[in-house]
Simulated scan of single mutants.
Amino acid sequence: MTRVKWWGTGLVALTLLVLWAGLPLLDKALGNGGRPLAPGTVVSVGTERDGVRPITLTIPHGGWALDEAETSLTGNAELTSEDVVVNLNVAVPLAPFDARELWDGLGRIVALGGRTRLGARPVPIVTAHGMTGLTGTITGRDRAGTAAVFATDTLGATVTAAGPPLAFRSLAPQVQAMVRTLTIAAPWTSETGP
């Protein structure tokens, strides 16, 4: 008579149970996998000229991370904190444009996703460096947020931030502080300004 040894099968089952229960806990403990950003970190996007990317924004508070998988520094950066996602995007015009045209174009892009809509009545916003743009709300099913657009004669930038309403509300002041640090550097701006 042959003896059946169950310890191998039991070990495999225990390993699978640990992986099934433990990996989600480990993932949650490690966060979303983004690279943590210290307060004061400058995030730069756009095509480099002489080692400089044209569009920058500064992270004013801790708790933000750069999602490297969703970021291409020549075109965009995705920042996350809790369940809120901030997207900084470069807008390269084919013809001269202004902030209102950029707002309208962003509204069409946001609506394509089907989950959110851009507010129809943006208001002026001025950055700490004196750049004028437009800002307004993002609304949708289980989503709340804000958007801002800035345009120069040669380059533009959009910043969108959205997440679950409670999470977004708690981070909205940080998002606004971040948006107010935005710059578009010369030689990407016109000589007369935006």
Results as ranks from 00 to 15, higher is better:
E68N: 03
I59V: 13
S170G: 02
W188M: 01
T47E: 10
L102P: 01
G114Y: 12
I109N: 10
A161M: 13
R121C: 06
P124D: 15
F150N: 07
T135R: 06
T154F: 14
G33P: 02
I109K: 15
G145T: 02
T183A: 11
W64D: 00
P93N: 13
A65V: 04
P39R: 05
L182G: 08
V12H: 00
R35E: 02
V179F: 10
D153N: 14
L102A: 12
S190Q: 10
G140V: 04
F97V: 12
D142Q: 09
M1K: 03
R35M: 07
R121K: 10
G114S: 09
E101F: 07
L66Q: 00
N87I: 12
I109S: 14
G114T: 09
D27C: 04
W64I: 10
V179H: 07
T15N: 02
G133V: 03
A144Y: 05
D98T: 05
A144P: 03
K5D: 13
G140S: 03
T47H: 08
I184Q: 04
R117C: 06
W20V: 13
L57W: 04
P96S: 14
P124T: 11
A21I: 13
A161W: 11
W64H: 06
I138H: 00
A120H: 09
L26Q: 00
L23W: 14
G31S: 06
A167Q: 09
D98E: 12
L134N: 01
G62A: 14
N32G: 15
D50A: 15
L17R: 05
I55K: 06
T56G: 06
E68S: 09
V85K: 07
I55E: 07
G145I: 02
R143F: 14
N76K: 08
P36L: 02
V86L: 06
I138L: 15
T74Y: 08
L25V: 12
R141P: 13
G105W: 03
I59Q: 00
L19Q: 08
Q176W: 12
D27Y: 07
I138T: 01
G51N: 14
A151P: 01
S44T: 13
S190P: 10
V42W: 02
K5C: 04
D104H: 06
A177Y: 02
I59C: 03
L155K: 10
T9Y: 12
L94K: 05
P60Q: 04
L182I: 15
L30S: 06
L26H: 03
L73K: 01
T158M: 14
K5S: 11
P164Y: 08
V123T: 14
E101C: 04
T183W: 12
G107H: 05
V45P: 00
V42M: 07
G31H: 11
T15H: 07
F150D: 03
K28G: 06
T47F: 02
S170D: 12
T158H: 11
R121N: 15
A111R: 15
V149A: 05
V179E: 10
W20C: 06
P54W: 15
